[in-house]
Design a protein around this nucleic acid. Structure first.
Lengths: 316, 316
DNA sequence: CAGCTTCATAACCTCAGGATATATAACCAT
DNA sequence: ATGGTTATATATCCTGAGGTTATGAAGCTG
């Protein structure tokens, strides 16, 4: 025999309120409705839930026991409703975020930490990938949002791309690097130093090639390649090697990693960092919160970078 | 927003079984039924419960969370069903039992203890009373069963009386009483001893009067009156006083209280100990169990008393 | 015991949710 | 790839739970 949980909840409310009429009112139902419902329940279980012939309806022993269970069911049901509400508002849920490694490690991961301070109930699953893989994951629904540098013309038709930051690249080195002592740096200046290269399949590797070509340097010596940002930072900090990194990454890890950007202009990649989502997929509500958060934080970051460059320019 | 607990239970089953079809089967419903139910639930909460475009249906994060709650609701619901089953079989419930004090204390209370060993989930509320009050309580539904000595002609029309034991009364005294030394006891023998009387409003008091009158004793000295069985036993054991008690009570408290019955025949009351119930009331199922138990135990008791008297007679 | 309050019943209507039949979409193996 | 297999969704119909209002019956109380 299967009881209707709703019936048990109604019973609990009646017992709690001390009467059928008050219980019905508290439930937002009519009195006859709950009366009939209780009659039906009594029929089903084949026993009285209320003492017969008592006018402020008083539960029997069995009625009281079932009411206790009904109250617990009600609490669970309310918990479920609250969970749904929280989810719909974006305060709860799981967010699957992926992006290109350097940006994820250098910029996004710190922002994710901030985001989780505000929304501890949002579980974030982060992974890495480049454009093709990211787009595929978005399409097959295993990813909610991708964060990567992209040229507007490269955005697939079935996706939406929201730019967050201009993709300015710089040549980075350790803070105490010999090149940092001079004001302007020429091609000849950087000639003797070895290079750290991002993984060969990454866009940054091609950026590095193009950047060096743009300042007239066709071939270069690679002393280290293939590492993640943490490795790159380590090697960079303990050697006189150079590399090409997004300025935002250098900006954010200056203090912690002891990095600086050389004052030499290199070609800007015609891409912007932004996030990519699949139009067809219904995004988890938490994504909206995260996207808003990212937009705000990147605006702030951009403002800080602007401010910094003005101060530096004024000083220099 | 109020979710349907049933929906959550179905969701839990689908997630548990790993697919909609299997879940439907486990629930004893058709596959389209649960499919539509889940579609309805998704509509209501405005979010996906299952990853879209996955064929062995896989729950989303939200779906899994709600399924967990659904499973807990299901457990509570099952608990309620089990409670009802247990109640209907008489293994659970509350039993309000009342009766005349001497019998309740001397016979029934020990049986209640035995009964509760077998049915620990049956809560027993015991109280005391005489006929009028017991009948009134049965009629107004504050009592489930009364245990008292009654003459068949005195059973009210709206009630049912089941006799359990013949109402043989005896003169009781302490085990080492001077009268116990002689074989047959005469009226003259008991002349010098004081009497313990039950409460004056009790049937036993009238029994006492009639019993003594039946052996030719019109007036008697009362040294103690009005106590419960515990008091009577105490006084009886520490004095040479006599009293009239049901033989069953003496039989059961011989060892513990050190009582004996005199070998003098007194008038039998024309009543039988039995239990009285209200015909109109729907009895709690546990009452049936208790009534059956009482019947069995009293049969056993009667057999033990029979056996005893035969042994005594053979010996004496 | 009259009047108030509380609960039960009646009559009506809507819609959740049961079933079967069938379409459609993933999955899998060749 | 592609066709067969399996899993899920949709269509349609039908029953009954449960919502309503109106009204009757039964406890409770002064």
């Amino acid at each position: 025999m299967k009881l209707d949980s709703e019936h048990l909840e109604i019973l609990a409310m009646i017992v709690d309120k001390g009467g059928l009429t008050e219980g019905a009112e508290a439930l937002g139902k009519s009195q006859p409705s709950v009366s009939r419902t209780m009659a039906l329940l009594e029929d089903r279980i084949g026993a009285a839930l209320f003492e017969p012939g008592k006018r402020p309806l008083r539960p029997t022993e069995l009625g009281e026991s079932l009411a206790r269970i009904g109250a617990r069911i009600h609490a669970l049901n309310a918990e479920a409703s609250a969970l749904v509400q929280s989810y719909r508002k974006g305060h709860t849920g799981r967010l699957r975020i992926a992006g290109t490694p350097i940006f994820m490690d250098g910029v996004v991961s710190t922002l994710i930490a901030d985001f989780q301070m505000r929304h501890p109930e949002v579980q974030i699953a982060q992974s890495y990938g480049y454009f093709d893989q990211l787009a595929a994951s978005l399409r097959n629904g295993t990813l909610d949002v991708a964060i990567l540098p992209l040229h507007p013309s490269m955005v697939p038709a079935d996706m939406r791309f929201v730019p967050l930051l201009a993709g300015r690249n710089v040549i980075a080195c350790r803070a105490g690097h010999p090149l940092m002592r001079r004001g302007a740096v020429t091609l000849a200046d950087i000639e003797p130093y070895p290079w750290i290269a991002p993984p060969p399949d990454s866009p940054l590797y091609r950026d590095l090639q193009r950047a060096l070509k743009s300042i007239g340097k066709e071939d270069f010596k690679v002393s280290f390649s293939g590492g993640t940002l943490a490795s790159i930072n380590s090697v960079l900090a303990r050697s006189d090697a150079l590399t090409v990194l997004p300025y935002s990454v250098v900006f954010l890890s200056r203090k912690s990693a002891g990095l600086e950007a050389l004052g030499i202009k290199i070609e800007h990649p015609d891409r912007q960092l932004g996030f990519l989502t699949h139009e067809a997929a219904t995004p988890p509500p938490a994504l909206r919160r995260f996207a808003d958060f990212l937009t705000d934080e990147f605006n702030l970051l951009e403002a800080r970078i602007q401010h910094e460059s003005q101060v530096t320019r004024r000083r220099g």
